[in-house]
Nucleic acid binder design. Structure first.
Length: 889
RNA sequence: AGGCGGUUAGCUCAGUCGGCAAGAGCGCUUCCCUUACAAGGAAGAGGUCGUGGGUUCGAUUCCCUCACCGCCUACCA
């Protein structure tokens, strides 16, 4: 037989295609109970990164498991139009060609974006698809699809009519690079080292008041200085005026509770148009709002001599001028949080403008209740608290964006300014209020998340009352990342109740974040990303999946070490080669049609080894199913790994080699059990490593009567209900003896198939010839039955006492007594300690009184085992020191 | 400032209701290309489970303190 390794490339490509051709992933069997997951739609600008890989592997495991478990499993795929991100990408492309969106104009620009989308927008889907995701691709959705647009408009109009959407002039987060408003969630705060500048503001009378600020350039827009009403330092100054430098403006000193006396000097400059705090102070005090920047972050005409400067150069300039005027008291280093645009990383500018908002308080109610009532659960549970905390403090949602790529706001304005806005799904011909002819549509588009939050029902055709909507909504499980808990998850729950009257899903599994060695999130822009596609090219999707899953315990962040996928890769190789052994075995013994049902019918004819592995398999089926039920993916995959490799391969397959070719028991029982365990384990492994299991499933068909056309659509195994508990103890004993002999053989370098003198009158397990054969085979020795006394032990033999019998082996050359002594002594010490501990426990009345019976029983049993072990070691030690008379049995 | 997560073998991590003689993968040591597999096999070494208290018959596990690492929220300019 030739050496072989598992080569995934062709196999993975082959089966993916077959699955699709056969429609394995289509959720078409409406007689079955549905199980539904909607994918968190990746951005069309995205590449598959390791975070997607983890997130989608988990979804795929759930879907495949449920599909096999008899559900009409539906995984809805789709992509997100990602308004700002996509517009930025296309603008960059245009820039390369010397074009700009302004030069093209709205219509032509949008054409470009659609072209770009046609060309690259499905790249990430192709990656997912080629690689593993068992989505129902016939239902692929896009957030800019016509029905999605229709849903978005319907929702807007409905919320507007309920008074939950309004238009207003507020201070909002503005990105001067993207020149658009952003929601609070779209701003990323980062600690940055800056300065705190103490500036002297000359008072109208005489003297100065010193204010502290991190942003001196905004002073040009100051319309007051505020102090705390009870601050004795400034009490008398309230109502005085300040002569604001550069802009020639008198501004008052006012008193406001919001001012912290301890911070800075206790006096704060108030810039209502460029700071959210100052904005609220200004509203309380009816201050003037003076905007000193334009939409791109340049100082405007209100900035007097600084007009035209960029906001950051203006800061430098103004500091220079202040120094010249001796108006800087001091400058301190200061670390503070600075908001950045989540799409382009530009520093956010608080900015006053007219935008559309959604009132969130009312919508949040049902979303809070459903979690309180336990009808929507988070896994891990701690996320519920974070979710609730956000909803409890929810602010209105700014939904209008001053970009072009996205859902146009369904609002028109009449030329007559007295007419209210026309809010309608259909384009109005004329103004319904005054009848005039040319209503103009609002130029803005909606926040991308304003379409994403409708995802769980919009993908099924809402607002139409479709059959899909009726059958598949609400969905079951949402698998997503922590970073979009507020952006997306919370808003979906709100939308679900508002528009469907029902929660959109009942379980939310928040998978961990994949981080690099320094704890940073893996991302392309940070340059610390591991490219999953590269790993797949190298070792296959199964290896990647297995490696990822193995490292991600219940919602914990994942810290990827180099070569994390080797575990999976090696495992696949093990599976591959063990399968080849089975094939070879079947062919050699001319076994063709193995009937699994026969195994179950003739249980009583099975020997301990078969019963043992069947029992372990049964337990494993139960365990893996339980793990999946509780989102314990790594526990499931690791316990399957252990079972397959360290029980099935290391022991059971090895045992099968003890039978001669065409042995009756081998052919009639062992081979069927080998195949049976293989087949069932492959099913359990399928959700984790779909490709190799599918390949082997089809190879199994040559020998067995496995069910289903594909393993992907076969049935999830149920335990047979075997309870051969007694085999466990015996197999453990056999393993122990085998390991003991192997240890001796290693220590004393004894050759293979050495003759071992054994007195098994006292070793009860070995009184069974079949057990003896098995031990001999596994330990690669031959037993000579002897009944001589240990006193007659020749000097070139080493002896091990086991229970009340013993075995002895001839040792070539020098027996290294010292090595053996050392080993036994340290073993003795170790066991003695534990023995003492258990003794103490068992003589403790409180323990006996309070501990549960099974714990006491367990401790007693351990105590006995330790005692007999100590006894053995004692005797063995005595043998080595030569005083072997007493231990002769 | 609050909240959350982490701290277990050299490295990366498991350890579900307190009752283990504390596990895995990689790495390390010794031996073996034995007819499924060297991406393999056999046998090993390696941990006072971050600190200090407490509860308990019993704590890696529960409670409190502290330390360090990380994350998330917050209108201290």
């Amino acid at each position: 037989m030739e050496k072989d390794r598992y080569h995934p490339e062709e196999i993975e490509a082959f089966w993916y295609q077959k699955w699709e051709e056969a429609g394995c992933f289509k959720a078409e069997n409406y007689t079955k109970k549905p199980y539904v997951i909607v994918i968190p739609p990746p951005n069309i600008t995205g590449y598959l990164h390791i975070g997607h890989a983890l997130n989608n592997t988990i979804q795929d495991i759930l879907i495949r498991w449920k599909r096999m478990s008899g559900f009409n499993a539906l995984w809805v795929p789709g992509t997100d139009h990602a308004g700002i991100a996509t517009q930025n990408v296309v603008e960059k492309e245009l820039m390369k060609k010397g074009l700009s969106r302004e030069a093209l104009g709205r219509e032509k620009f949008l054409k470009e974006v659609w072209l770009w989308r046609e060309k690259y927008g499905n790249r990430i889907i192709e990656q997912l698809k080629r690689l593993w995701a068992s989505c129902d691709w016939s239902r692929l959705c896009f957030t800019m699809d016509e029905n999605l647009s229709h849903a978005v408009q319907t929702v807007f109009v409905s919320l507007y009519k309920k008074g939950l959407i309004y238009r207003g002039t507020r201070i909002i987060n503005w990105c001067p690079r993207c020149t658009t408003a952003l929601s609070d969630e779209e701003v990323e705060y980062r600690e940055e080292v800056g300065h705190l500048y103490y500036i002297r503001y000359p008072m109208e009378g005489k003297g100065f008041i010193v204010v502290a600020t991190t942003r001196p350039e905004t002073m040009l827009g100051d319309t007051a200085v505020a102090v705390h009403p009870e601050d004795i330092r400034y009490k008398d100054l309230i109502g005085e005026n300040i002569h604001l430098p550069f802009v020639d403006r008198l501004i008052p000193i006012i008193a406001d509770q919001q001012v912290e006396q301890e911070f800075g000097t206790g006096a704060v400059k108030v810039t209502p148009s460029h700071d959210p705090n100052d904005y609220s102070i200004a509203r309380r005090h009816n201050l003037q709002f003076i905007t000193v920047m334009d939409t791109t972050g340049r100082m405007n005409k209100n900035a007097a001599i600084f007009a035209g400067l960029d906001r950051f150069s203006c800061r430098e300039e103004i500091l220079k001028k202040l120094k010249e005027k001796n108006l800087i008291e001091k400058i301190e280093p200061y670390t503070h949080r600075v908001g950045h645009c989540y799409r382009c990383d530009t520093v956010i500018e608080p900015y006053i403008s007219e935008q559309w908002f959604v009132k969130m308080k009312e919508l949040a109610g049902p979303a809070i209740k459903v979690v309180h009532d336990g009808e929507l659960r988070f896994y891990p549970e701690r996320w519920a608290k974070i979710y609730l905390q956000w909803l409890d403090n929810i602010h209105d949602w700014c939904i209008s964006r001053q970009i072009w790529w996205g859902h146009r706001i369904p609002v028109w304005y009449c030329s007559n300014e007295k007419c209210p806005p026309i809010v309608s799904v259909e384009t109005p011909e004329r103004c319904p209020f005054c009848g005039c002819g040319h209503p103009v549509q609002d130029p803005d588009v909606l926040d991308t998340w304003f379409s994403s939050w409708l995802w769980p029902f919009a993908v099924f055709g809402w607002p139409e009352k479709t059959r899909d909507l009726e059958i598949f909504y609400p969905t079951d499980t949402l698998v997503t990342a922590q970073e979009i808990l507020f952006f997306w998850v919370a808003r979906m729950v709100m939308a679900g109740f508002e528009f469907m009257g029902k929660k959109p899903f009942s379980s939310v599994y928040i998978n961990g974040t994949v981080r690099d060695k320094t704890g940073k999130k893996m991302s392309k822009s940070l340059g610390n990303a591991i490219d999953p596609v590269e790993i797949i090219d190298e070792a296959g999707a199964d290896s990647l999946r297995f490696g990822l899953i193995s490292l991600t315990s219940f919602g914990q962040d994942v810290f990827l070490p180099d070569g994390f996928h080797y575990k999976g890769r090696n495992f696949l190789n093990k599976i591959w080669n063990s399968f080849r052994y089975l094939e070879m075995l079947a062919e050699k013994n001319q076994v063709e049609r193995i009937s699994f049902s026969a195994i179950r019918e003739e249980i009583e004819k099975l020997k301990i080894s078969e019963r043992w592995i069947l029992m372990l398999l049964d337990r494993k089926i139960q365990h893996v199913s339980d793990c999946l039920e509780n989102f314990r993916f790594n526990e499931a995959s690791d316990s399957l790994y252990d079972f397959y490799w360290h029980q099935y391969c290391d022991w059971y397959i090895e045992m099968s080699k003890m039978y001669p070719e065409k042995d009756q028991y081998l052919v009639s029982k062992v081979i069927p059990v080998l195949f049976y365990v293989m087949a069932r384990t492959l099913k359990l492994l399928h959700p984790f490593i779909p490709f190799i299991t599918e390949e082997l499933w089809h190879r199994l068909k040559k020998f067995t009567d496995v069910d289903g056309d594909f393993i992907a659509t076969s049935s999830w195994p149920e335990p047979d209900g075997f309870s051969f508990e007694e085999t466990l103890e015996k197999m453990d004993e056999i393993k122990k003896i085998v390991i003991e002999i192997r240890d001796l053989k290693t220590t004393f370098r004894i050759p293979v198939n050495h003759n071992l003198d054994v007195d098994y009158r006292g070793i009860s397990l070995l009184s069974d010839p079949w057990h003896r054969t098995m031990v001999e085979f596994l330990a690669r020795v031959r037993f000579n039955s002897v009944e001589r006394s240990l006193q007659d032990k020749p000097d070139d033999e080493i002896v091990r006492i086991w229970e009340s019998g013993w075995f002895s082996m001839k040792v070539r050359g020098i027996i290294d007594i010292a090595t053996e002594m050392k080993k036994l002594s340290s073993e003795k010490d170790k066991i003695s300690k534990i023995f003492e501990e258990t003794s103490r426990k068992l003589s403790n009345e409180e323990f006996l009184k309070r501990a549960p019976a099974e714990v006491i029983e367990k401790t007693r049993k351990l105590q006995n085992e330790l005692a007999s072990e100590l006894n053995k070691i004692e005797k063995n030690l005595k043998l080595l020191t030569g005083s072997n008379h007493e231990c002769d049995n």
